[in-house]
Amino acid sequence: MAATMHAFADAAELARNLADKVAASLSTAITTRGTAVITVSGGSTPRAFFQELSTRDIDWSKVTITLVDERFVPADNERSNHLLVASNLLRNKAKAAKFQPLYQAAGSVEEAAALATAATQAIGNPFDVAILGMGGDGHTASFFPGGSNLKVALDPTTPRGIITMEAEGAGEPRLTFTFSSLQDAGLLVLHIEGEGKKDVLRKAEGAGDEADMPIRAILRRAASPVDIYWAP
């Protein structure tokens, strides 16, 4: 499916425009179905977008927010994506939204993945909105080059749900939605900033193996068109 590049003058303009687009998509879902689901990514890039989105005037009480992926750390850990979302998105008008975490207090990351899969099944799929990021190594979600479960995670026949991932570039063990869970979102966005990430994207759009740059799986095989939001 083709990708469309939306380029903006700076990160603030990108955040405003992406918040407007996402808010419109969520509102449409609420009007059509009565509820809406958005899954978001961590890292430093989405912070301004989260803050913008939190002020948008939609019926947040009918919105469920979850995470594309998460580190196997408690919600109060400074590296937790849950904490990032709680601090930047679950505020202002978006305080009324429901949040579904991926981290589950469990004896192992594998047990946590099973619990998270069960917990997220109730929120429905496909997602109305999925916001992906991309690392300098070409990873997205927790699909890391050399990841322990990368082949399974990227396999389109792997069921929707949460899978574990461990990789040299990942730090802590991770919990991540599978490719099948993300690739057919109503609005599928890759949010990246900086010339360096643009160069990584260009490389990913060229020939090469998905295992080397897992973002290629989204760019090449997603059922939904990919909207790329970029600013220098």
Rank of each mutant, 00 (worst) to 15 (best):
D137P: 08
A11W: 06
D184P: 00
G42M: 11
T157W: 01
L182Y: 05
I192C: 03
L14R: 14
G196D: 15
S25G: 08
L154W: 05
A231V: 04
F127K: 04
T176Q: 07
G161T: 07
D155F: 10
L14D: 00
L150N: 04
S54N: 04
V189M: 06
A86Q: 13
Q121I: 01
A130N: 12
F177L: 12
M5F: 12
A116E: 13
A11N: 14
A75T: 11
N81F: 10
T120M: 07
T157C: 02
G138Y: 11
M165D: 13
N77I: 02
F50L: 01
P232W: 00
F99A: 02
P74R: 10
A75E: 15
F72R: 10
P214R: 08
K95G: 01
S180Y: 02
A217C: 05
T4E: 14
A29P: 09
E13N: 04
H191C: 13
N92K: 07
A94I: 01
N17I: 01
P225S: 13
P156S: 12
V22P: 03
T55D: 09
E70A: 05
P101T: 08
A29Y: 10
A23D: 11
Y229L: 05
M213N: 04
S148Q: 12
R216S: 12
K98D: 12
K198F: 09
P101E: 09
D137F: 09
T32L: 14
G206R: 02
V189H: 07
F143G: 09
Q183D: 10
R174V: 11
G146F: 05
V226W: 09
A24M: 11
A114M: 09
G124R: 04
K198A: 09
E13V: 12
G208P: 05
F127N: 09
L26T: 04
A223Y: 05
D10H: 14
T45E: 09
E52R: 08
L154Q: 07
R47K: 15
S80Y: 04
D137T: 06
A211Q: 12
A222R: 07
K151S: 13
V189S: 10
V85S: 01
R221T: 07
A7Q: 14
F143Y: 14
A36H: 10
L201E: 03
E168G: 00
G135N: 11
V85G: 02
V40T: 13
R56G: 08
A231Y: 06
E205I: 01
E172G: 01
P145V: 03
A75L: 04
A217T: 06
P232V: 01
L188C: 11
L90Q: 01
W60E: 09
I123M: 13
I131K: 05
P126T: 07
F143I: 07
A118K: 15
R221G: 04
D212E: 15
N77Q: 10
A86G: 00
